[in-house]
Computed example of a mutant assay.
Amino acid sequence: MANIQRRTTASGETRYQVCIRLKGFAPQTSTFDRLTDAKRWAAKIETEMREGRFFQANARPKHKVSDAIDRYQREILPNKSSSTIRDQSQQLEWWRKEIGTLHLHDLTPAVIAGCKTKLAATPMPPRGKAVNIEPVYRSASTVTAYLRVMSHLCSTAEREWEWLERNPVMAVKKPKLNNARSRFLSDEERARLLQECKNFPDLYLAVVLALSTGARKNEIWDLRWHQIDLDRQSITLHLTKNKEIRVVPVVGEALAILRERQALRPRPNDHLFPGKVEGKSFDFRKQWEHCIAAAQLHNFRYHDLRHTAASYLAMSGATLPELAEILGHKTLQMVKRYAHFTPDHKKSVVERMVSAYL
């Protein structure tokens, strides 16, 4: 039968340790953060023991975390988008470096929680040639992304491979997300950045497209020529975050550059920005970090070009529904952060109402 003991750790946290002793089986123990989880696990294991369905942990293959990462990268990761493969490959390699030598049955919520703390507290390695810059830490959303891929790996190992009894990541509290970041370029910063990007013509076009369309990084970097209709002056985005097709107008300098490039023949492939690897788009990260450092921009990410475009649209009189449609947001909540850029537009609306009715 199961025995559950309540214990208090040195840090003052409460844990519930379960020990199951049943004739014919080795004692089974496990520790949980919640009493409900402890009771549920005890009931499950006892039922499996009595019904002959219990597979003892010591009889399981002693797979390591690195073995699970290898199998995940081999069987699961190739089915995802190219941008997801790039990001999650980097995240999985971080997990391999930290806990790759651990056996899966030693992977506990406490281990995952320790990794979560380290992810948030350790500065990210600098990119480019920038020196003497302030350390940059992973945001809450980035830490959550690391936890998400590890959770999916553990769930797959539990449900499909039968390498784990339960997913330890599920018991770890995720960081509180703050999506209110709205860093955008000043006029002086924009001029400096564009001047530096002119040293890299492809990157310059990618930045101009981001500023004039508000499209996301992967939507621009992975662009194909067949998505671009210069006659209608529009770009059709297929690989959107919301999994919905979105059409954005392309005008001004971006349109002029695209027309110049369309006249160049032949093109190596359908990619607007062909990469060094056949069939892949170019990765601008090194060039981008170089330009950011040279332009002396602090705490500015490529995604902030999207915030900058949104702020320009708002200051040009775009309404919140118009902003949401152009940027590809399903709700108005995400564009409310730009409302403070539109006081003159709201004032004109009120003035029209007053002149007509009061």
Results as ranks from 00 to 15, higher is better:
Thr308Leu: 01
Phe282His: 15
Glu278Cys: 08
Ser311His: 04
Ile245His: 04
Gly252Arg: 11
Ile292Ser: 00
Ala256Tyr: 03
Tyr312Trp: 14
His303Phe: 06
Lys280Glu: 13
Ile257His: 03
Phe284Trp: 09
Arg259Trp: 08
Ser281Ile: 05
Val277Arg: 13
Glu260His: 10
Pro266Ser: 12
Gly275Lys: 08
Glu322Ile: 06
Gln296Asp: 13
Ala294Val: 06
Leu272Thr: 05
Ala293Phe: 11
Leu320Thr: 04
Ala256His: 11
Asn299Asp: 15
Ala254Gln: 02
Pro249Phe: 03
Ser311Pro: 07
Asp304Pro: 01
Pro274Ala: 09
Cys291Met: 03
Tyr312Thr: 09
Pro274Thr: 08
Leu323Phe: 09
Met315Phe: 00
Val251Arg: 15
Ala295Ser: 13
Leu323Ser: 04
Ile292Trp: 03
Ser316Arg: 09
Lys280Leu: 09
His307Val: 00
Asn299Met: 00
Cys291Glu: 07
Arg301Ser: 01
Glu322Gly: 08
Leu255Arg: 10
His298Glu: 15
Arg267Val: 10
Leu305Lys: 12
Val247Ala: 11
Asp283Ala: 06
Leu297Ala: 02
Phe273Met: 04
Gly317Ser: 04
Glu322Thr: 10
Asn299Ala: 06
Arg285Thr: 05
Glu260Val: 05
Lys276Cys: 01
Asp270Ile: 03
Tyr312Gly: 04
Leu272Tyr: 01
Ile292Gln: 13
Trp288His: 05
Leu258Asp: 00
Pro321Trp: 12
Ala314Thr: 05
